[in-house]
Design a protein around this nucleic acid. Structure first.
Length: 259
DNA sequence: ATGGCCGGCGCAGCCGGA
């Protein structure tokens, strides 16, 4: 079973790229972030014609997440629990039945947190605290679980081509890194780091020729519960998609699980 | 050497992103 995460930076502007990648990669589940559309605007018919079931949690203009899947999920949850006043669409879960039991998948669009010194950074940290609580609850279920998404955290200096350029950025603050580390230390496995120690980037800015210079960062992560880490077959970053026409600034990251 | 973008909204630039 292939499970992918991809911040597509606007689903309406990215349909050709999205359909081409779905045809090429044929993931079983694709978690999307930054769909930048309300549910009614999501081009569901075209995705369904490509063989995918569509579940969305959208919002006008920005944010928004979706989960596309070959099989219809048994259950869907929209919104990160823990703050009823939070109206930003950044989190959803879907539960799938497989031959060997259920697999739970979350599509996460963690707040960016920039600029520092504004209310955005505390919002990021508070959101991470809520994610921590959700992860604790889900780990207690002892199910195969994949927390997939754009975490907007550069976990370590080696996850940036130019780490010194990010020292004043919310993505690399000690508080952001500590919160990410606390999440992992609950017993989750960072899938990419489970298979390689090499620099592995998932985002290249549109500006300043970042892609051409490989000036990238690793901020899109798939965190696996022990039950899914045990079934990990492989991990892949589809970096070539960054070189396509009309690319997102992020690329898909894919895990293969033995289920 | 420096600086370089993009999508949404809505029809001009501004907001938000990372």
């Amino acid at each position: 079973m292939q499970i992918a995460t991809w911040n597509i930076n606007g689903v309406k502007a990215r349909m050709e790229t999205l359909l081409a990648w779905l045809r090429e990669a044929a993931p079983d589940v694709a978690c999307l972030q930054e769909i930048k559309a309300v549910d009614d605007q999501f081009p569901a018919l075209e995705i369904e014609a490509a063989g995918y079931h569509v579940e969305t949690h959208g919002q006008k203009g920005f944010n928004g997440v979706a989960i596309l899947s070959k099989a219809k999920p048994d259950e869907v949850l929209r919104g990160l629990p823990g703050d009823p006043a939070d109206e930003q669409a950044r989190y959803m879960e879907a539960v799938f039945s497989t031959g060997s039991g259920v697999v739970r998948v979350a599509s996460i669009y963690l707040p960016n947190g920039n600029p520092l010194g504004t209310e955005k950074f505390p919002y990021k940290l508070a959101w991470m605290k809520r994610l921590q609580a959700r992860a604790e609850s889900l780990l207690a279920l002892e199910e195969p679980l994949v927390l997939a998404g754009d975490y907007n955290v550069i976990p370590e200096p080696r996850d940036a081509r130019h780490p010194e350029a990010w020292t004043g950025d919310a993505l690399a603050q000690p508080e952001s890194r500590d919160a990410f580390a606390r999440l992992v230390h609950l017993g989750l496995t960072d899938a990419v780091r489970a298979v390689t120690d090499e620099p592995s980037f998932t985002f290249w800015d549109y500006q300043a020729g970042a892609w051409q210079k490989n000036n990238g960062i690793r901020i899109d992560h798939l965190l696996l519960s022990p039950e899914s880490a045990r079934r990990l077959r492989g991990v892949r970053i589809d970096s070539h998609v960054r070189g396509w026409e009309k690319p997102s600034d992020h690329v898909p990251v894919v895990v293969a699980l033995d289920v």
